Simulated scan of single mutants.
Amino acid sequence: MTEQQRAEEGTGREPEESKPPVVTEDTVEALVRSQLAKALGGKRGMVEAAIPTLTFTISYIVSSELRLSIGLGVAAAVLLGVLRLVQRSSVQYVVTSLFGIGIAAIFAMRSGNAADAFLPGIIYNAVYAVVLSLSVLVRWPAIGLMIGPFIGNKEDFSSWRENPAVVTLASKLTWLLVLPCVIRVLVQYPLWAADTYGWADTFALLGLSKIAMGWPLQVAAFAAMVWVLARGRTPLEQGQGQGSPAAAQD
């Protein structure tokens, strides 16, 4: 025990190092920003995620050859991966992109319908939206699970839920993650159905919508999160080992 700790015990004060950290809306914003950056991979990761899909879409529009278009899309992802390896940088986002186009290829090759390459993404967004929505409805919002380890008692992972202000804020931020998924499904599913059932040739629109509604919508969702945090000005200060109601600051 250090001299400072002995002195603090003598005065009845809690040692400084045992006090829980103060978490504010700024630190929550930093956490959201960090997690989003990891998910998107920065500007380069965003571009790398779009190139294979764009290559596949343009190739099929030009050639109408499904196998060739899928091959070019996969080749684009592999080329990006090789470039990453040469530069000795992380291939995480390229591998994710390659996995995605691989699943898309399986769907398209099984049916012989190029539009089915976009079906896995539509299904993924629908399921993701449902899971996130359920997390809010059962009062375990997904964003709260992300910031939980930084709030309240670290030995009790659920302690952040004792603070109603934290749960409310986390619920609002989680709904903002649900919104892009819902928009993608509402736009892309009708386009997929129209092309699949021969109502209209919407393949090009489907491909472009997937790219346009990818990271741009995620960035927009993040901007909305920042706006909510800045507008609420709700510091998530906590008591010693217990969540205390957040005090609003105008």
Rank of each mutant, 00 (worst) to 15 (best):
Q4M: 13
G10F: 12
G10E: 14
R13I: 10
E14T: 12
E16A: 11
K19N: 03
K19E: 04
K19Y: 01
P21N: 02
L36N: 11
K38R: 15
A39E: 13
G45S: 07
V47P: 06
E48H: 06
A49N: 10
A50Q: 04
P52A: 05
T53V: 11
L54Q: 08
T55Y: 08
T55S: 12
T55N: 07
Y60I: 01
I61K: 09
I61Y: 12
V62I: 15
S63N: 11
S63D: 09
S64C: 03
L66S: 02
I70G: 06
G71Y: 11
A75C: 04
A77E: 03
G81S: 11
Q87W: 06
Q87C: 04
R88T: 01
R88W: 05
S89Q: 13
S90A: 13
V94C: 13
V95A: 15
G100S: 09
I103P: 09
D116Y: 09
G121W: 06
G121D: 05
I122T: 01
V130A: 12
S133L: 05
L134Y: 07
V138Q: 13
R139N: 15
W140K: 15
I143T: 05
G144V: 05
G144N: 01
I147L: 10
I147P: 07
I147D: 05
I151D: 12
K154M: 10
K154G: 08
E155C: 04
F157Y: 14
S158L: 13
S159R: 02
T168V: 00
L177G: 12
L186C: 02
L186W: 01
Y189L: 12
L191H: 00
W192F: 10
T196N: 13
G198H: 08
T202F: 06
L205S: 09
I211Q: 09
M213F: 11
V219S: 12
A220P: 07
A224E: 10
M225W: 14
V226K: 09
W227M: 06
E237S: 11
E237I: 06
E237F: 07
E237V: 07
G239R: 03
G241E: 00
A247G: 11
Q249C: 00
